Amino acid sequence: LAHGAAAADAAALPTVASACRAERALLLADAGELAVADALAVDLLAADGVRTGALAPAHLVRGLVAYWQDRLGDARADLEDALALAGPAQLAVAVRAAATLALVCHAQDDRAAFERARRRVEDALQTTGTGGARHAVPADDPGAEQHVSLDVLGRIATSHCRTSVDVVAVLQRALVLAEDDEHAAHRMLERALDVAEPAGVRRPFVELEPLLHDLLLEHLRWGSTHEALVASLVAGDAPRRAQRGGWGNLELTEREHQVLVRLRSTMTTTEIAAVL
C-alpha cells in the first residue's frame, strides 16, 4: 500500500493515493500501531482535497483510536464521517464504523442513536448473508424483532485491533486469577497496563471497571509503574461507583474522591496536586 500510494502520486492519481494511505492506516491500527496509524490518518484528512469514499478508512482509524482512548465525543464524530463516506464497495469499513458507533452511543446512553447504528449493522449483515451472527430476543415475545446483541457489536468493532484484544484478554485473565492468586492477578494487571499506557488505551479498563475496581485499588498498594493511570481510572468513575455504594456512607465530592484514591498510592501530595 505504501508503494501503491507513491506510484499513484507519480501518476497524478490523488484519489488512489489517498485510498492506499487510508487502508494502510487501518492495517497499522489493527496491528497495534495506534499512534502511527492515527498520525497517518490525521495527515491524510488534513490535506486539501475533495472528501471522497477513499477517506472513509482514515475516519474509521481516527474513530477507533479515539474510542479506545475513551474520547467518545471525538470517536462519534469520526465514525459518523466514516459511515457517511463509505460507499457500497466499502461494506467492511461501514460495518466496523457502525458497530463501534453503536458502542459509543451505548456508553453515552443515547438510545436513539444506538438503535440507528445497530440497524446499520443488522442491514449490512443481512446483505452479506451473515445472519448467523445475530441472536433473537426471548421467544415469549412474538412481536419482537431480532437484534444484533451488544456482545456481537463488540466483537465486530474490536476483534481486528490487536492492542485492544490483548488488553481485554489480559484483564479478563487477571480477574480470574484474583480469586485464587492475588500476586499473579496483580502481575497480569501490570502487564495489561504495560500494553495499554503507551497507546493511550483506556476503554477496556473503563468498561470492566465495576469488576476491576477493587483490584485496581489494591494495585496502588501493590506497586505499579503506572500509578497515575491506575489512580485516574479508579477516580474517574464516580457515578457508577456511587451506584455500587463504593465508599459506604461517605459523602465525598468528586474532587475529594480523586484525592482520596491517590492517597492510597506512593504519590506525594505535591505529585497529586500536579496531576490534578
Rank of each mutant, 00 (worst) to 15 (best):
R120T: 10
T269F: 15
R202F: 03
D70G: 02
Q108M: 13
A124C: 03
A184E: 13
D141Q: 13
P57Q: 02
Q69D: 07
V61Q: 04
A196W: 02
P210N: 06
R255S: 15
E271F: 03
D237T: 10
E256C: 09
E145A: 15
S265Y: 03
G32H: 03
A102K: 07
L175I: 03
V42G: 00
S149P: 12
A117F: 00
V259M: 04
D74H: 05
L233Q: 00
G143Q: 07
A144D: 13
R134H: 07
A8V: 09
G73I: 04
E145H: 05
D181M: 04
L211H: 12
G87T: 09
E218M: 06
R173H: 12
A192K: 02
V201P: 04
S149T: 14
T100W: 01
D237L: 14
A77H: 08
A231D: 05
C161T: 14
A178L: 10
H147M: 01
G143K: 06
A41I: 03
A11T: 07
L34D: 15
R241Q: 13
H160Q: 12
D181N: 10
R120I: 01
R71A: 09
T253K: 02
L60A: 05
V65L: 05
A8D: 06
I272S: 07
P198R: 02
V42E: 10
H147V: 09
H226E: 11
